[in-house]
Design a protein around this nucleic acid. Structure first.
Length: 797
RNA sequence: GCCUGUGUGGCGGAAUUGGUAGACGCGCUGGACUCAAAAUCCAGUGUUAGCGAUAACGUGUCGGUUCGAGUCCGACCACAGGCACCA
């Protein structure tokens, strides 16, 4: 019995020395880009989640490699980010130093998994040779009008001391630390992802992604079809536009509501209402986002004193302000149709505003009627259904210049400024005379200075670093100041998959020819938590770069898989505070990396995950010991056994199909079935061929051990350069088969049938078993259903 | 409130997409080997009844379609995740 753990170290060294998994960009084989989401080099070691992601995906990659693909399988580190900086604040250790150290540790651990990564393409986002090109990306987006700076109310995390993108705010709290975010007006850099909203939404249909994930993105993009309707303010030159999805209900619009922070409010408010409006605006601004958007909150609002003209019936309707209208969505103004909208209804009831039904149905004296119905009280729309009414109203609005059809999105532009140190500096210079000046490309990278103070006070440490801040304007040569903020780390990870194939290019972020050949990523595997962040940003980057002419494909990740979560033995999410974590390292030491990987594949449905059990890993250890034993039962014999052949080939078919679908548990089950057949011949000796087939089919699952056994039975290095075994159809055709006989849908017996049995013959056979006779006797046979090769059902009365 | 998932033995999980529910593994029971134990091997193992052949019941609940439903349809329950005054 070998020590698995030691065997593995031996082969890891050998593979590294020989560059066994070297990617050949000039190979004639079909390329396959398999990518796991790269990881953040935190101080903690690799956890079970990393193993589950990287170990299991590697088996898929190895299978494809043995199936004749030219595998591109790189690995790297998402190395900028807050934790390293927070660590520096606590310990004084510079992020550059702690990050390097962590990367070194993680590299060692990753190599301990025994993955088929080609480390020559490794990428570390915190290194100058990478972030130089991240800055280049910023410049290109700026050049093409996709990066802009604006003063806006932004989400600020008081604990992380930085602003956050919308996507990083999870129900009002910071995605990272859980602190409630506050609204702040700040001048910040944005990427215009909204320009791509429509394409980002539509192209989802083309992708082989989990439906769940596509839905999350669809939801996040939040497309809404409707119309703009413009209302004139009475006795004023002012007008305002509302967005509505139901312009057909315009005859029922009895008042309008503006978001309190809308500038228009100040222009139209009457003298009598001024103080009430000011008071309300103040109260609204004091509320947190959470309080304000609480659905249970009672409606509040104030009349502005001003009136608008309903463009369809020219009625004078009051203009109110209320915090239930959001400045950030649509136009920040709505027309209220209280008869058919619950919120408007509640508001109208509270403030005693008119409620006019324009759809038939419901009882509006009790509640808003939100169902469908034929139009009433609606002039030229009367009698029409919803669809026709919307179309007619849209035409009417457009003809009379009162409004037009439109589409809005919930998606906001991506805020990329961060008031932190450990990130890529934004390559912008502020000059008193020239204003915003982008750093010239040839001056990149804007280097992150090493000598800074890490004091968390809401301002970028860079701002206090004089040597960094002071520069000369590239345009006029006068003294100028640098942008002190750094880029959101999601910017770094939005293009790393493009850098991998050309990782050492120092003339450009990547060569167009090279990445057009290697990209898109064929299989991308990682957590679902990135659905509306990384996965959306990366798609945006790809499309933007395509439009700028730097690449020729539309989507970065053709096929996506999310691994599930490995929970603690108690069924709860693993966490240090709960004390239910299971560390991979001691298990690797005790059982070996292949055994751990094997359990992760066999014990769970990959996309579900589930609770860890120690017994499970013991089972895989037992199984691999059995394989080890069987290799010792090898005999040099040309003999073939029909029962082994049958299981071998039928198993291979299932194994191949299932690995393809990331169903590693059932694949392994089939390998076990094959192994169980071999065990029957252990005593008399197992012909070489059968042992070789076992090792080959197992090679992607247990790369080290199969390599060891492959050598031990006298074969040439390396098993991983062999072809994955193929099944032979001829063993799959069954001449005889056992099928079930049902009487009235209940199984009563089984019979053996032969492939050339006629239907009549099968019917006859089905009547033979005693137990079938018992249930048929004395009854009338209504019909007999024969499904060839599957089942016979005798229906009696 | 809305959207998306999930629900199968003591446990992890299978089920060719409408055709023998519970593959494979863990655990458990009995046996072989052993002075004994571990390891290994063999047999059994959904529940209930029966010595047994076998029968009844059984995939969250209730109903439906069908010769036949874990799978399809309708209503509901529970759990998980996402969105949430989005006009």
């Amino acid at each position: 019995m070998r020590n698995f753990s030691e065997v593995e170290k031996k082969w890891q060294k050998r593979w590294e020395r020989d560059h066994l998994y070297k990617f050949d960009p000039n190979s004639d084989k079909k390329k396959l880009y398999c990518l796991e989401m790269f990881s953040y080099p935190s101080g903690a070691k690799l956890h079970m989640g990393h193993w589950y992601n990287y170990g299991v995906t590697d088996t898929w990659a190895r299978f494809k490699r043995m199936s004749g693909y030219n595998l591109f399988h790189p690995m790297g580190f998402d190395a900028f980010g807050l934790p390293a900086e927070n660590y520096a604040i606590k310990t004084g250790i510079h992020p550059a130093i702690s990050t390097d150290k962590n990367i070194e540790t993680m590299e060692k651990q990753l190599k301990g998994i025994g993955g088929s990564w080609d480390w020559d393409y490794e990428v570390k986002t915190c290194k100058e040779d990478y972030y130089k090109w991240t800055q280049w990306m910023f410049l290109k987006l700026y050049e093409h009008g996709l990066a802009y700076k604006k003063e806006a109310p932004v989400n600020f995390c008081p604990s992380c001391n930085t602003v956050l993108a919308n996507e990083q705010v999870i129900s009002g709290a910071c995605e990272r630390c859980g602190t409630m975010v506050v609204r702040k007006n700040m001048s910040q850099w944005f990427f215009k992802i909204t320009d791509y909203a429509e394409e980002l939404l539509n192209d989802l249909d083309k992708l082989d992604w989990p439906e769940r994930t596509k839905n999350l993105q669809r939801n996040w993009i939040g497309r809404s079809e409707g119309a703009y309707v413009t209302f004139k303010v009475v006795d004023s030159d002012e007008e305002f536009t509302v967005f509505t999805t139901r312009c057909d209900t315009l005859f029922g619009a009895t008042y309008c509501v503006l978001a309190p922070e809308l500038p228009l409010v100040d222009k139209i408010v009457t003298d009598e209402q001024k103080s009430a409006v000011e008071q309300y605006k103040l109260e609204a601004s004091r509320q947190s986002e959470i309080e304000r958007t609480s659905t249970t909150k009672e409606k509040t609002g104030v009349f502005t004193g001003a009136y608008a003209i309903n463009p369809v019936n020219h009625k004078k309707i009051p203009i109110w302000i209320s915090d239930y209208v959001l400045a950030s969505y649509g136009t920040g103004a709505i027309m209220a149709v209280p008869a058919h909208d619950e919120r408007d209804y509640a508001f109208a009831k509270k403030f005693d505003l008119d409620i006019i039904p324009v759809l038939e149905g419901g009882d509006i004296s009790k509640e808003a009627y939100v169902g469908d119905g034929v139009h009433i009280n609606s002039g030229f729309l009367d009698g029409l259904n919803k669809e026709d009414a919307i179309n007619k109203m849209c035409s009417y609005l457009e003809e009379n210049d009162y409004g037009k059809k439109t589409v809005t999105y919930k998606l906001r532009d991506w805020l990329v400024s961060r008031q932190r140190y450990w990130g890529a500096p934004i390559p912008i210079i502020y000059c008193e005379d020239c204003g915003i000046v982008p750093v010239p490309e040839e001056d990149l990278p804007v280097k992150l200075p090493m000598d800074v103070e890490f004091t968390p006070d809401g301002e970028s440490p860079l701002k206090k670093c004089d040597s960094f801040m002071h520069c000369t304007c590239p345009k006029c040569g006068k003294p100028a100041l640098r942008e002190a903020d750094t880029l959101d780390t999601f910017v770094c990870s939005s293009w790393y998959f493009l850098r991998y194939p050309d990782a050492h290019n120092d003339k450009a972020p990547f060569d167009k020819g090279i990445i057009n050949k290697v990209l898109p990523v064929d299989k991308y595997v990682g957590g679902i938590e990135h659905a509306c962040m990384h996965l959306l940003y990366a798609r945006f980057f790809t499309k933007a770069l395509r439009d700028m002419g730097y690449l020729d494909f539309d989507e970065p990740f053709l096929s996506l898989v999310h691994q599930g979560t490995i929970l603690g033995p108690d069924g709860e999410k693993m966490s240090k505070s709960k004390g239910n974590t299971v560390a991979p390292d001691p298990l690797v030491e005790e059982y070996g990396a292949d055994v751990l990987r094997g359990y992760l594949m066999f014990g769970f449905n990959y996309v579900d995950g589930g609770p860890w059990t120690d017994d499970g890993i013991v089972a895989i250890n037992k199984f691999y010991r059995k394989v080890e034993r069987l290799t010792e039962a090898l005999v040099e014999s040309e003999e073939r056994y029909a029962d082994i052949d049958k299981v071998l080939h039928s198993s291979l078919k299932v194994i191949r199909d299932n690995i393809e679908k990331f169903q590693f548990n059932t694949s392994m089950a089939k390998i076990m079935e094959y192994t169980n057949v071999l065990v029957k011949y252990e005593k008399e000796g197992i012909p070489r061929y059968y042992i070789e087939q076992l090792l080959l089919m197992l090679a992607p699952f247990a790369p080290h051990l199969t390599e060891e056994f492959w050598e031990a039975i006298g074969n040439e290095y390396s098993i991983h350069n062999q072809d994955y075994p193929m099944y032979d159809e001829k063993y799959l055709v069954e001449t005889e088969k056992e099928i079930a006989v049902q009487v009235n849908g209940k199984v009563r017996a089984t019979i053996m049938i032969s492939v050339d049995d006629s239907e009549d013959m099968i019917k006859e056979k089905a009547m033979q078993p005693e137990n079938v006779k018992r249930f048929v006797e004395g009854k009338e046979i209504v019909k007999v259903i024969v499904i060839k090769g599957k089942i016979v059902n005798i229906v009696v009365k």
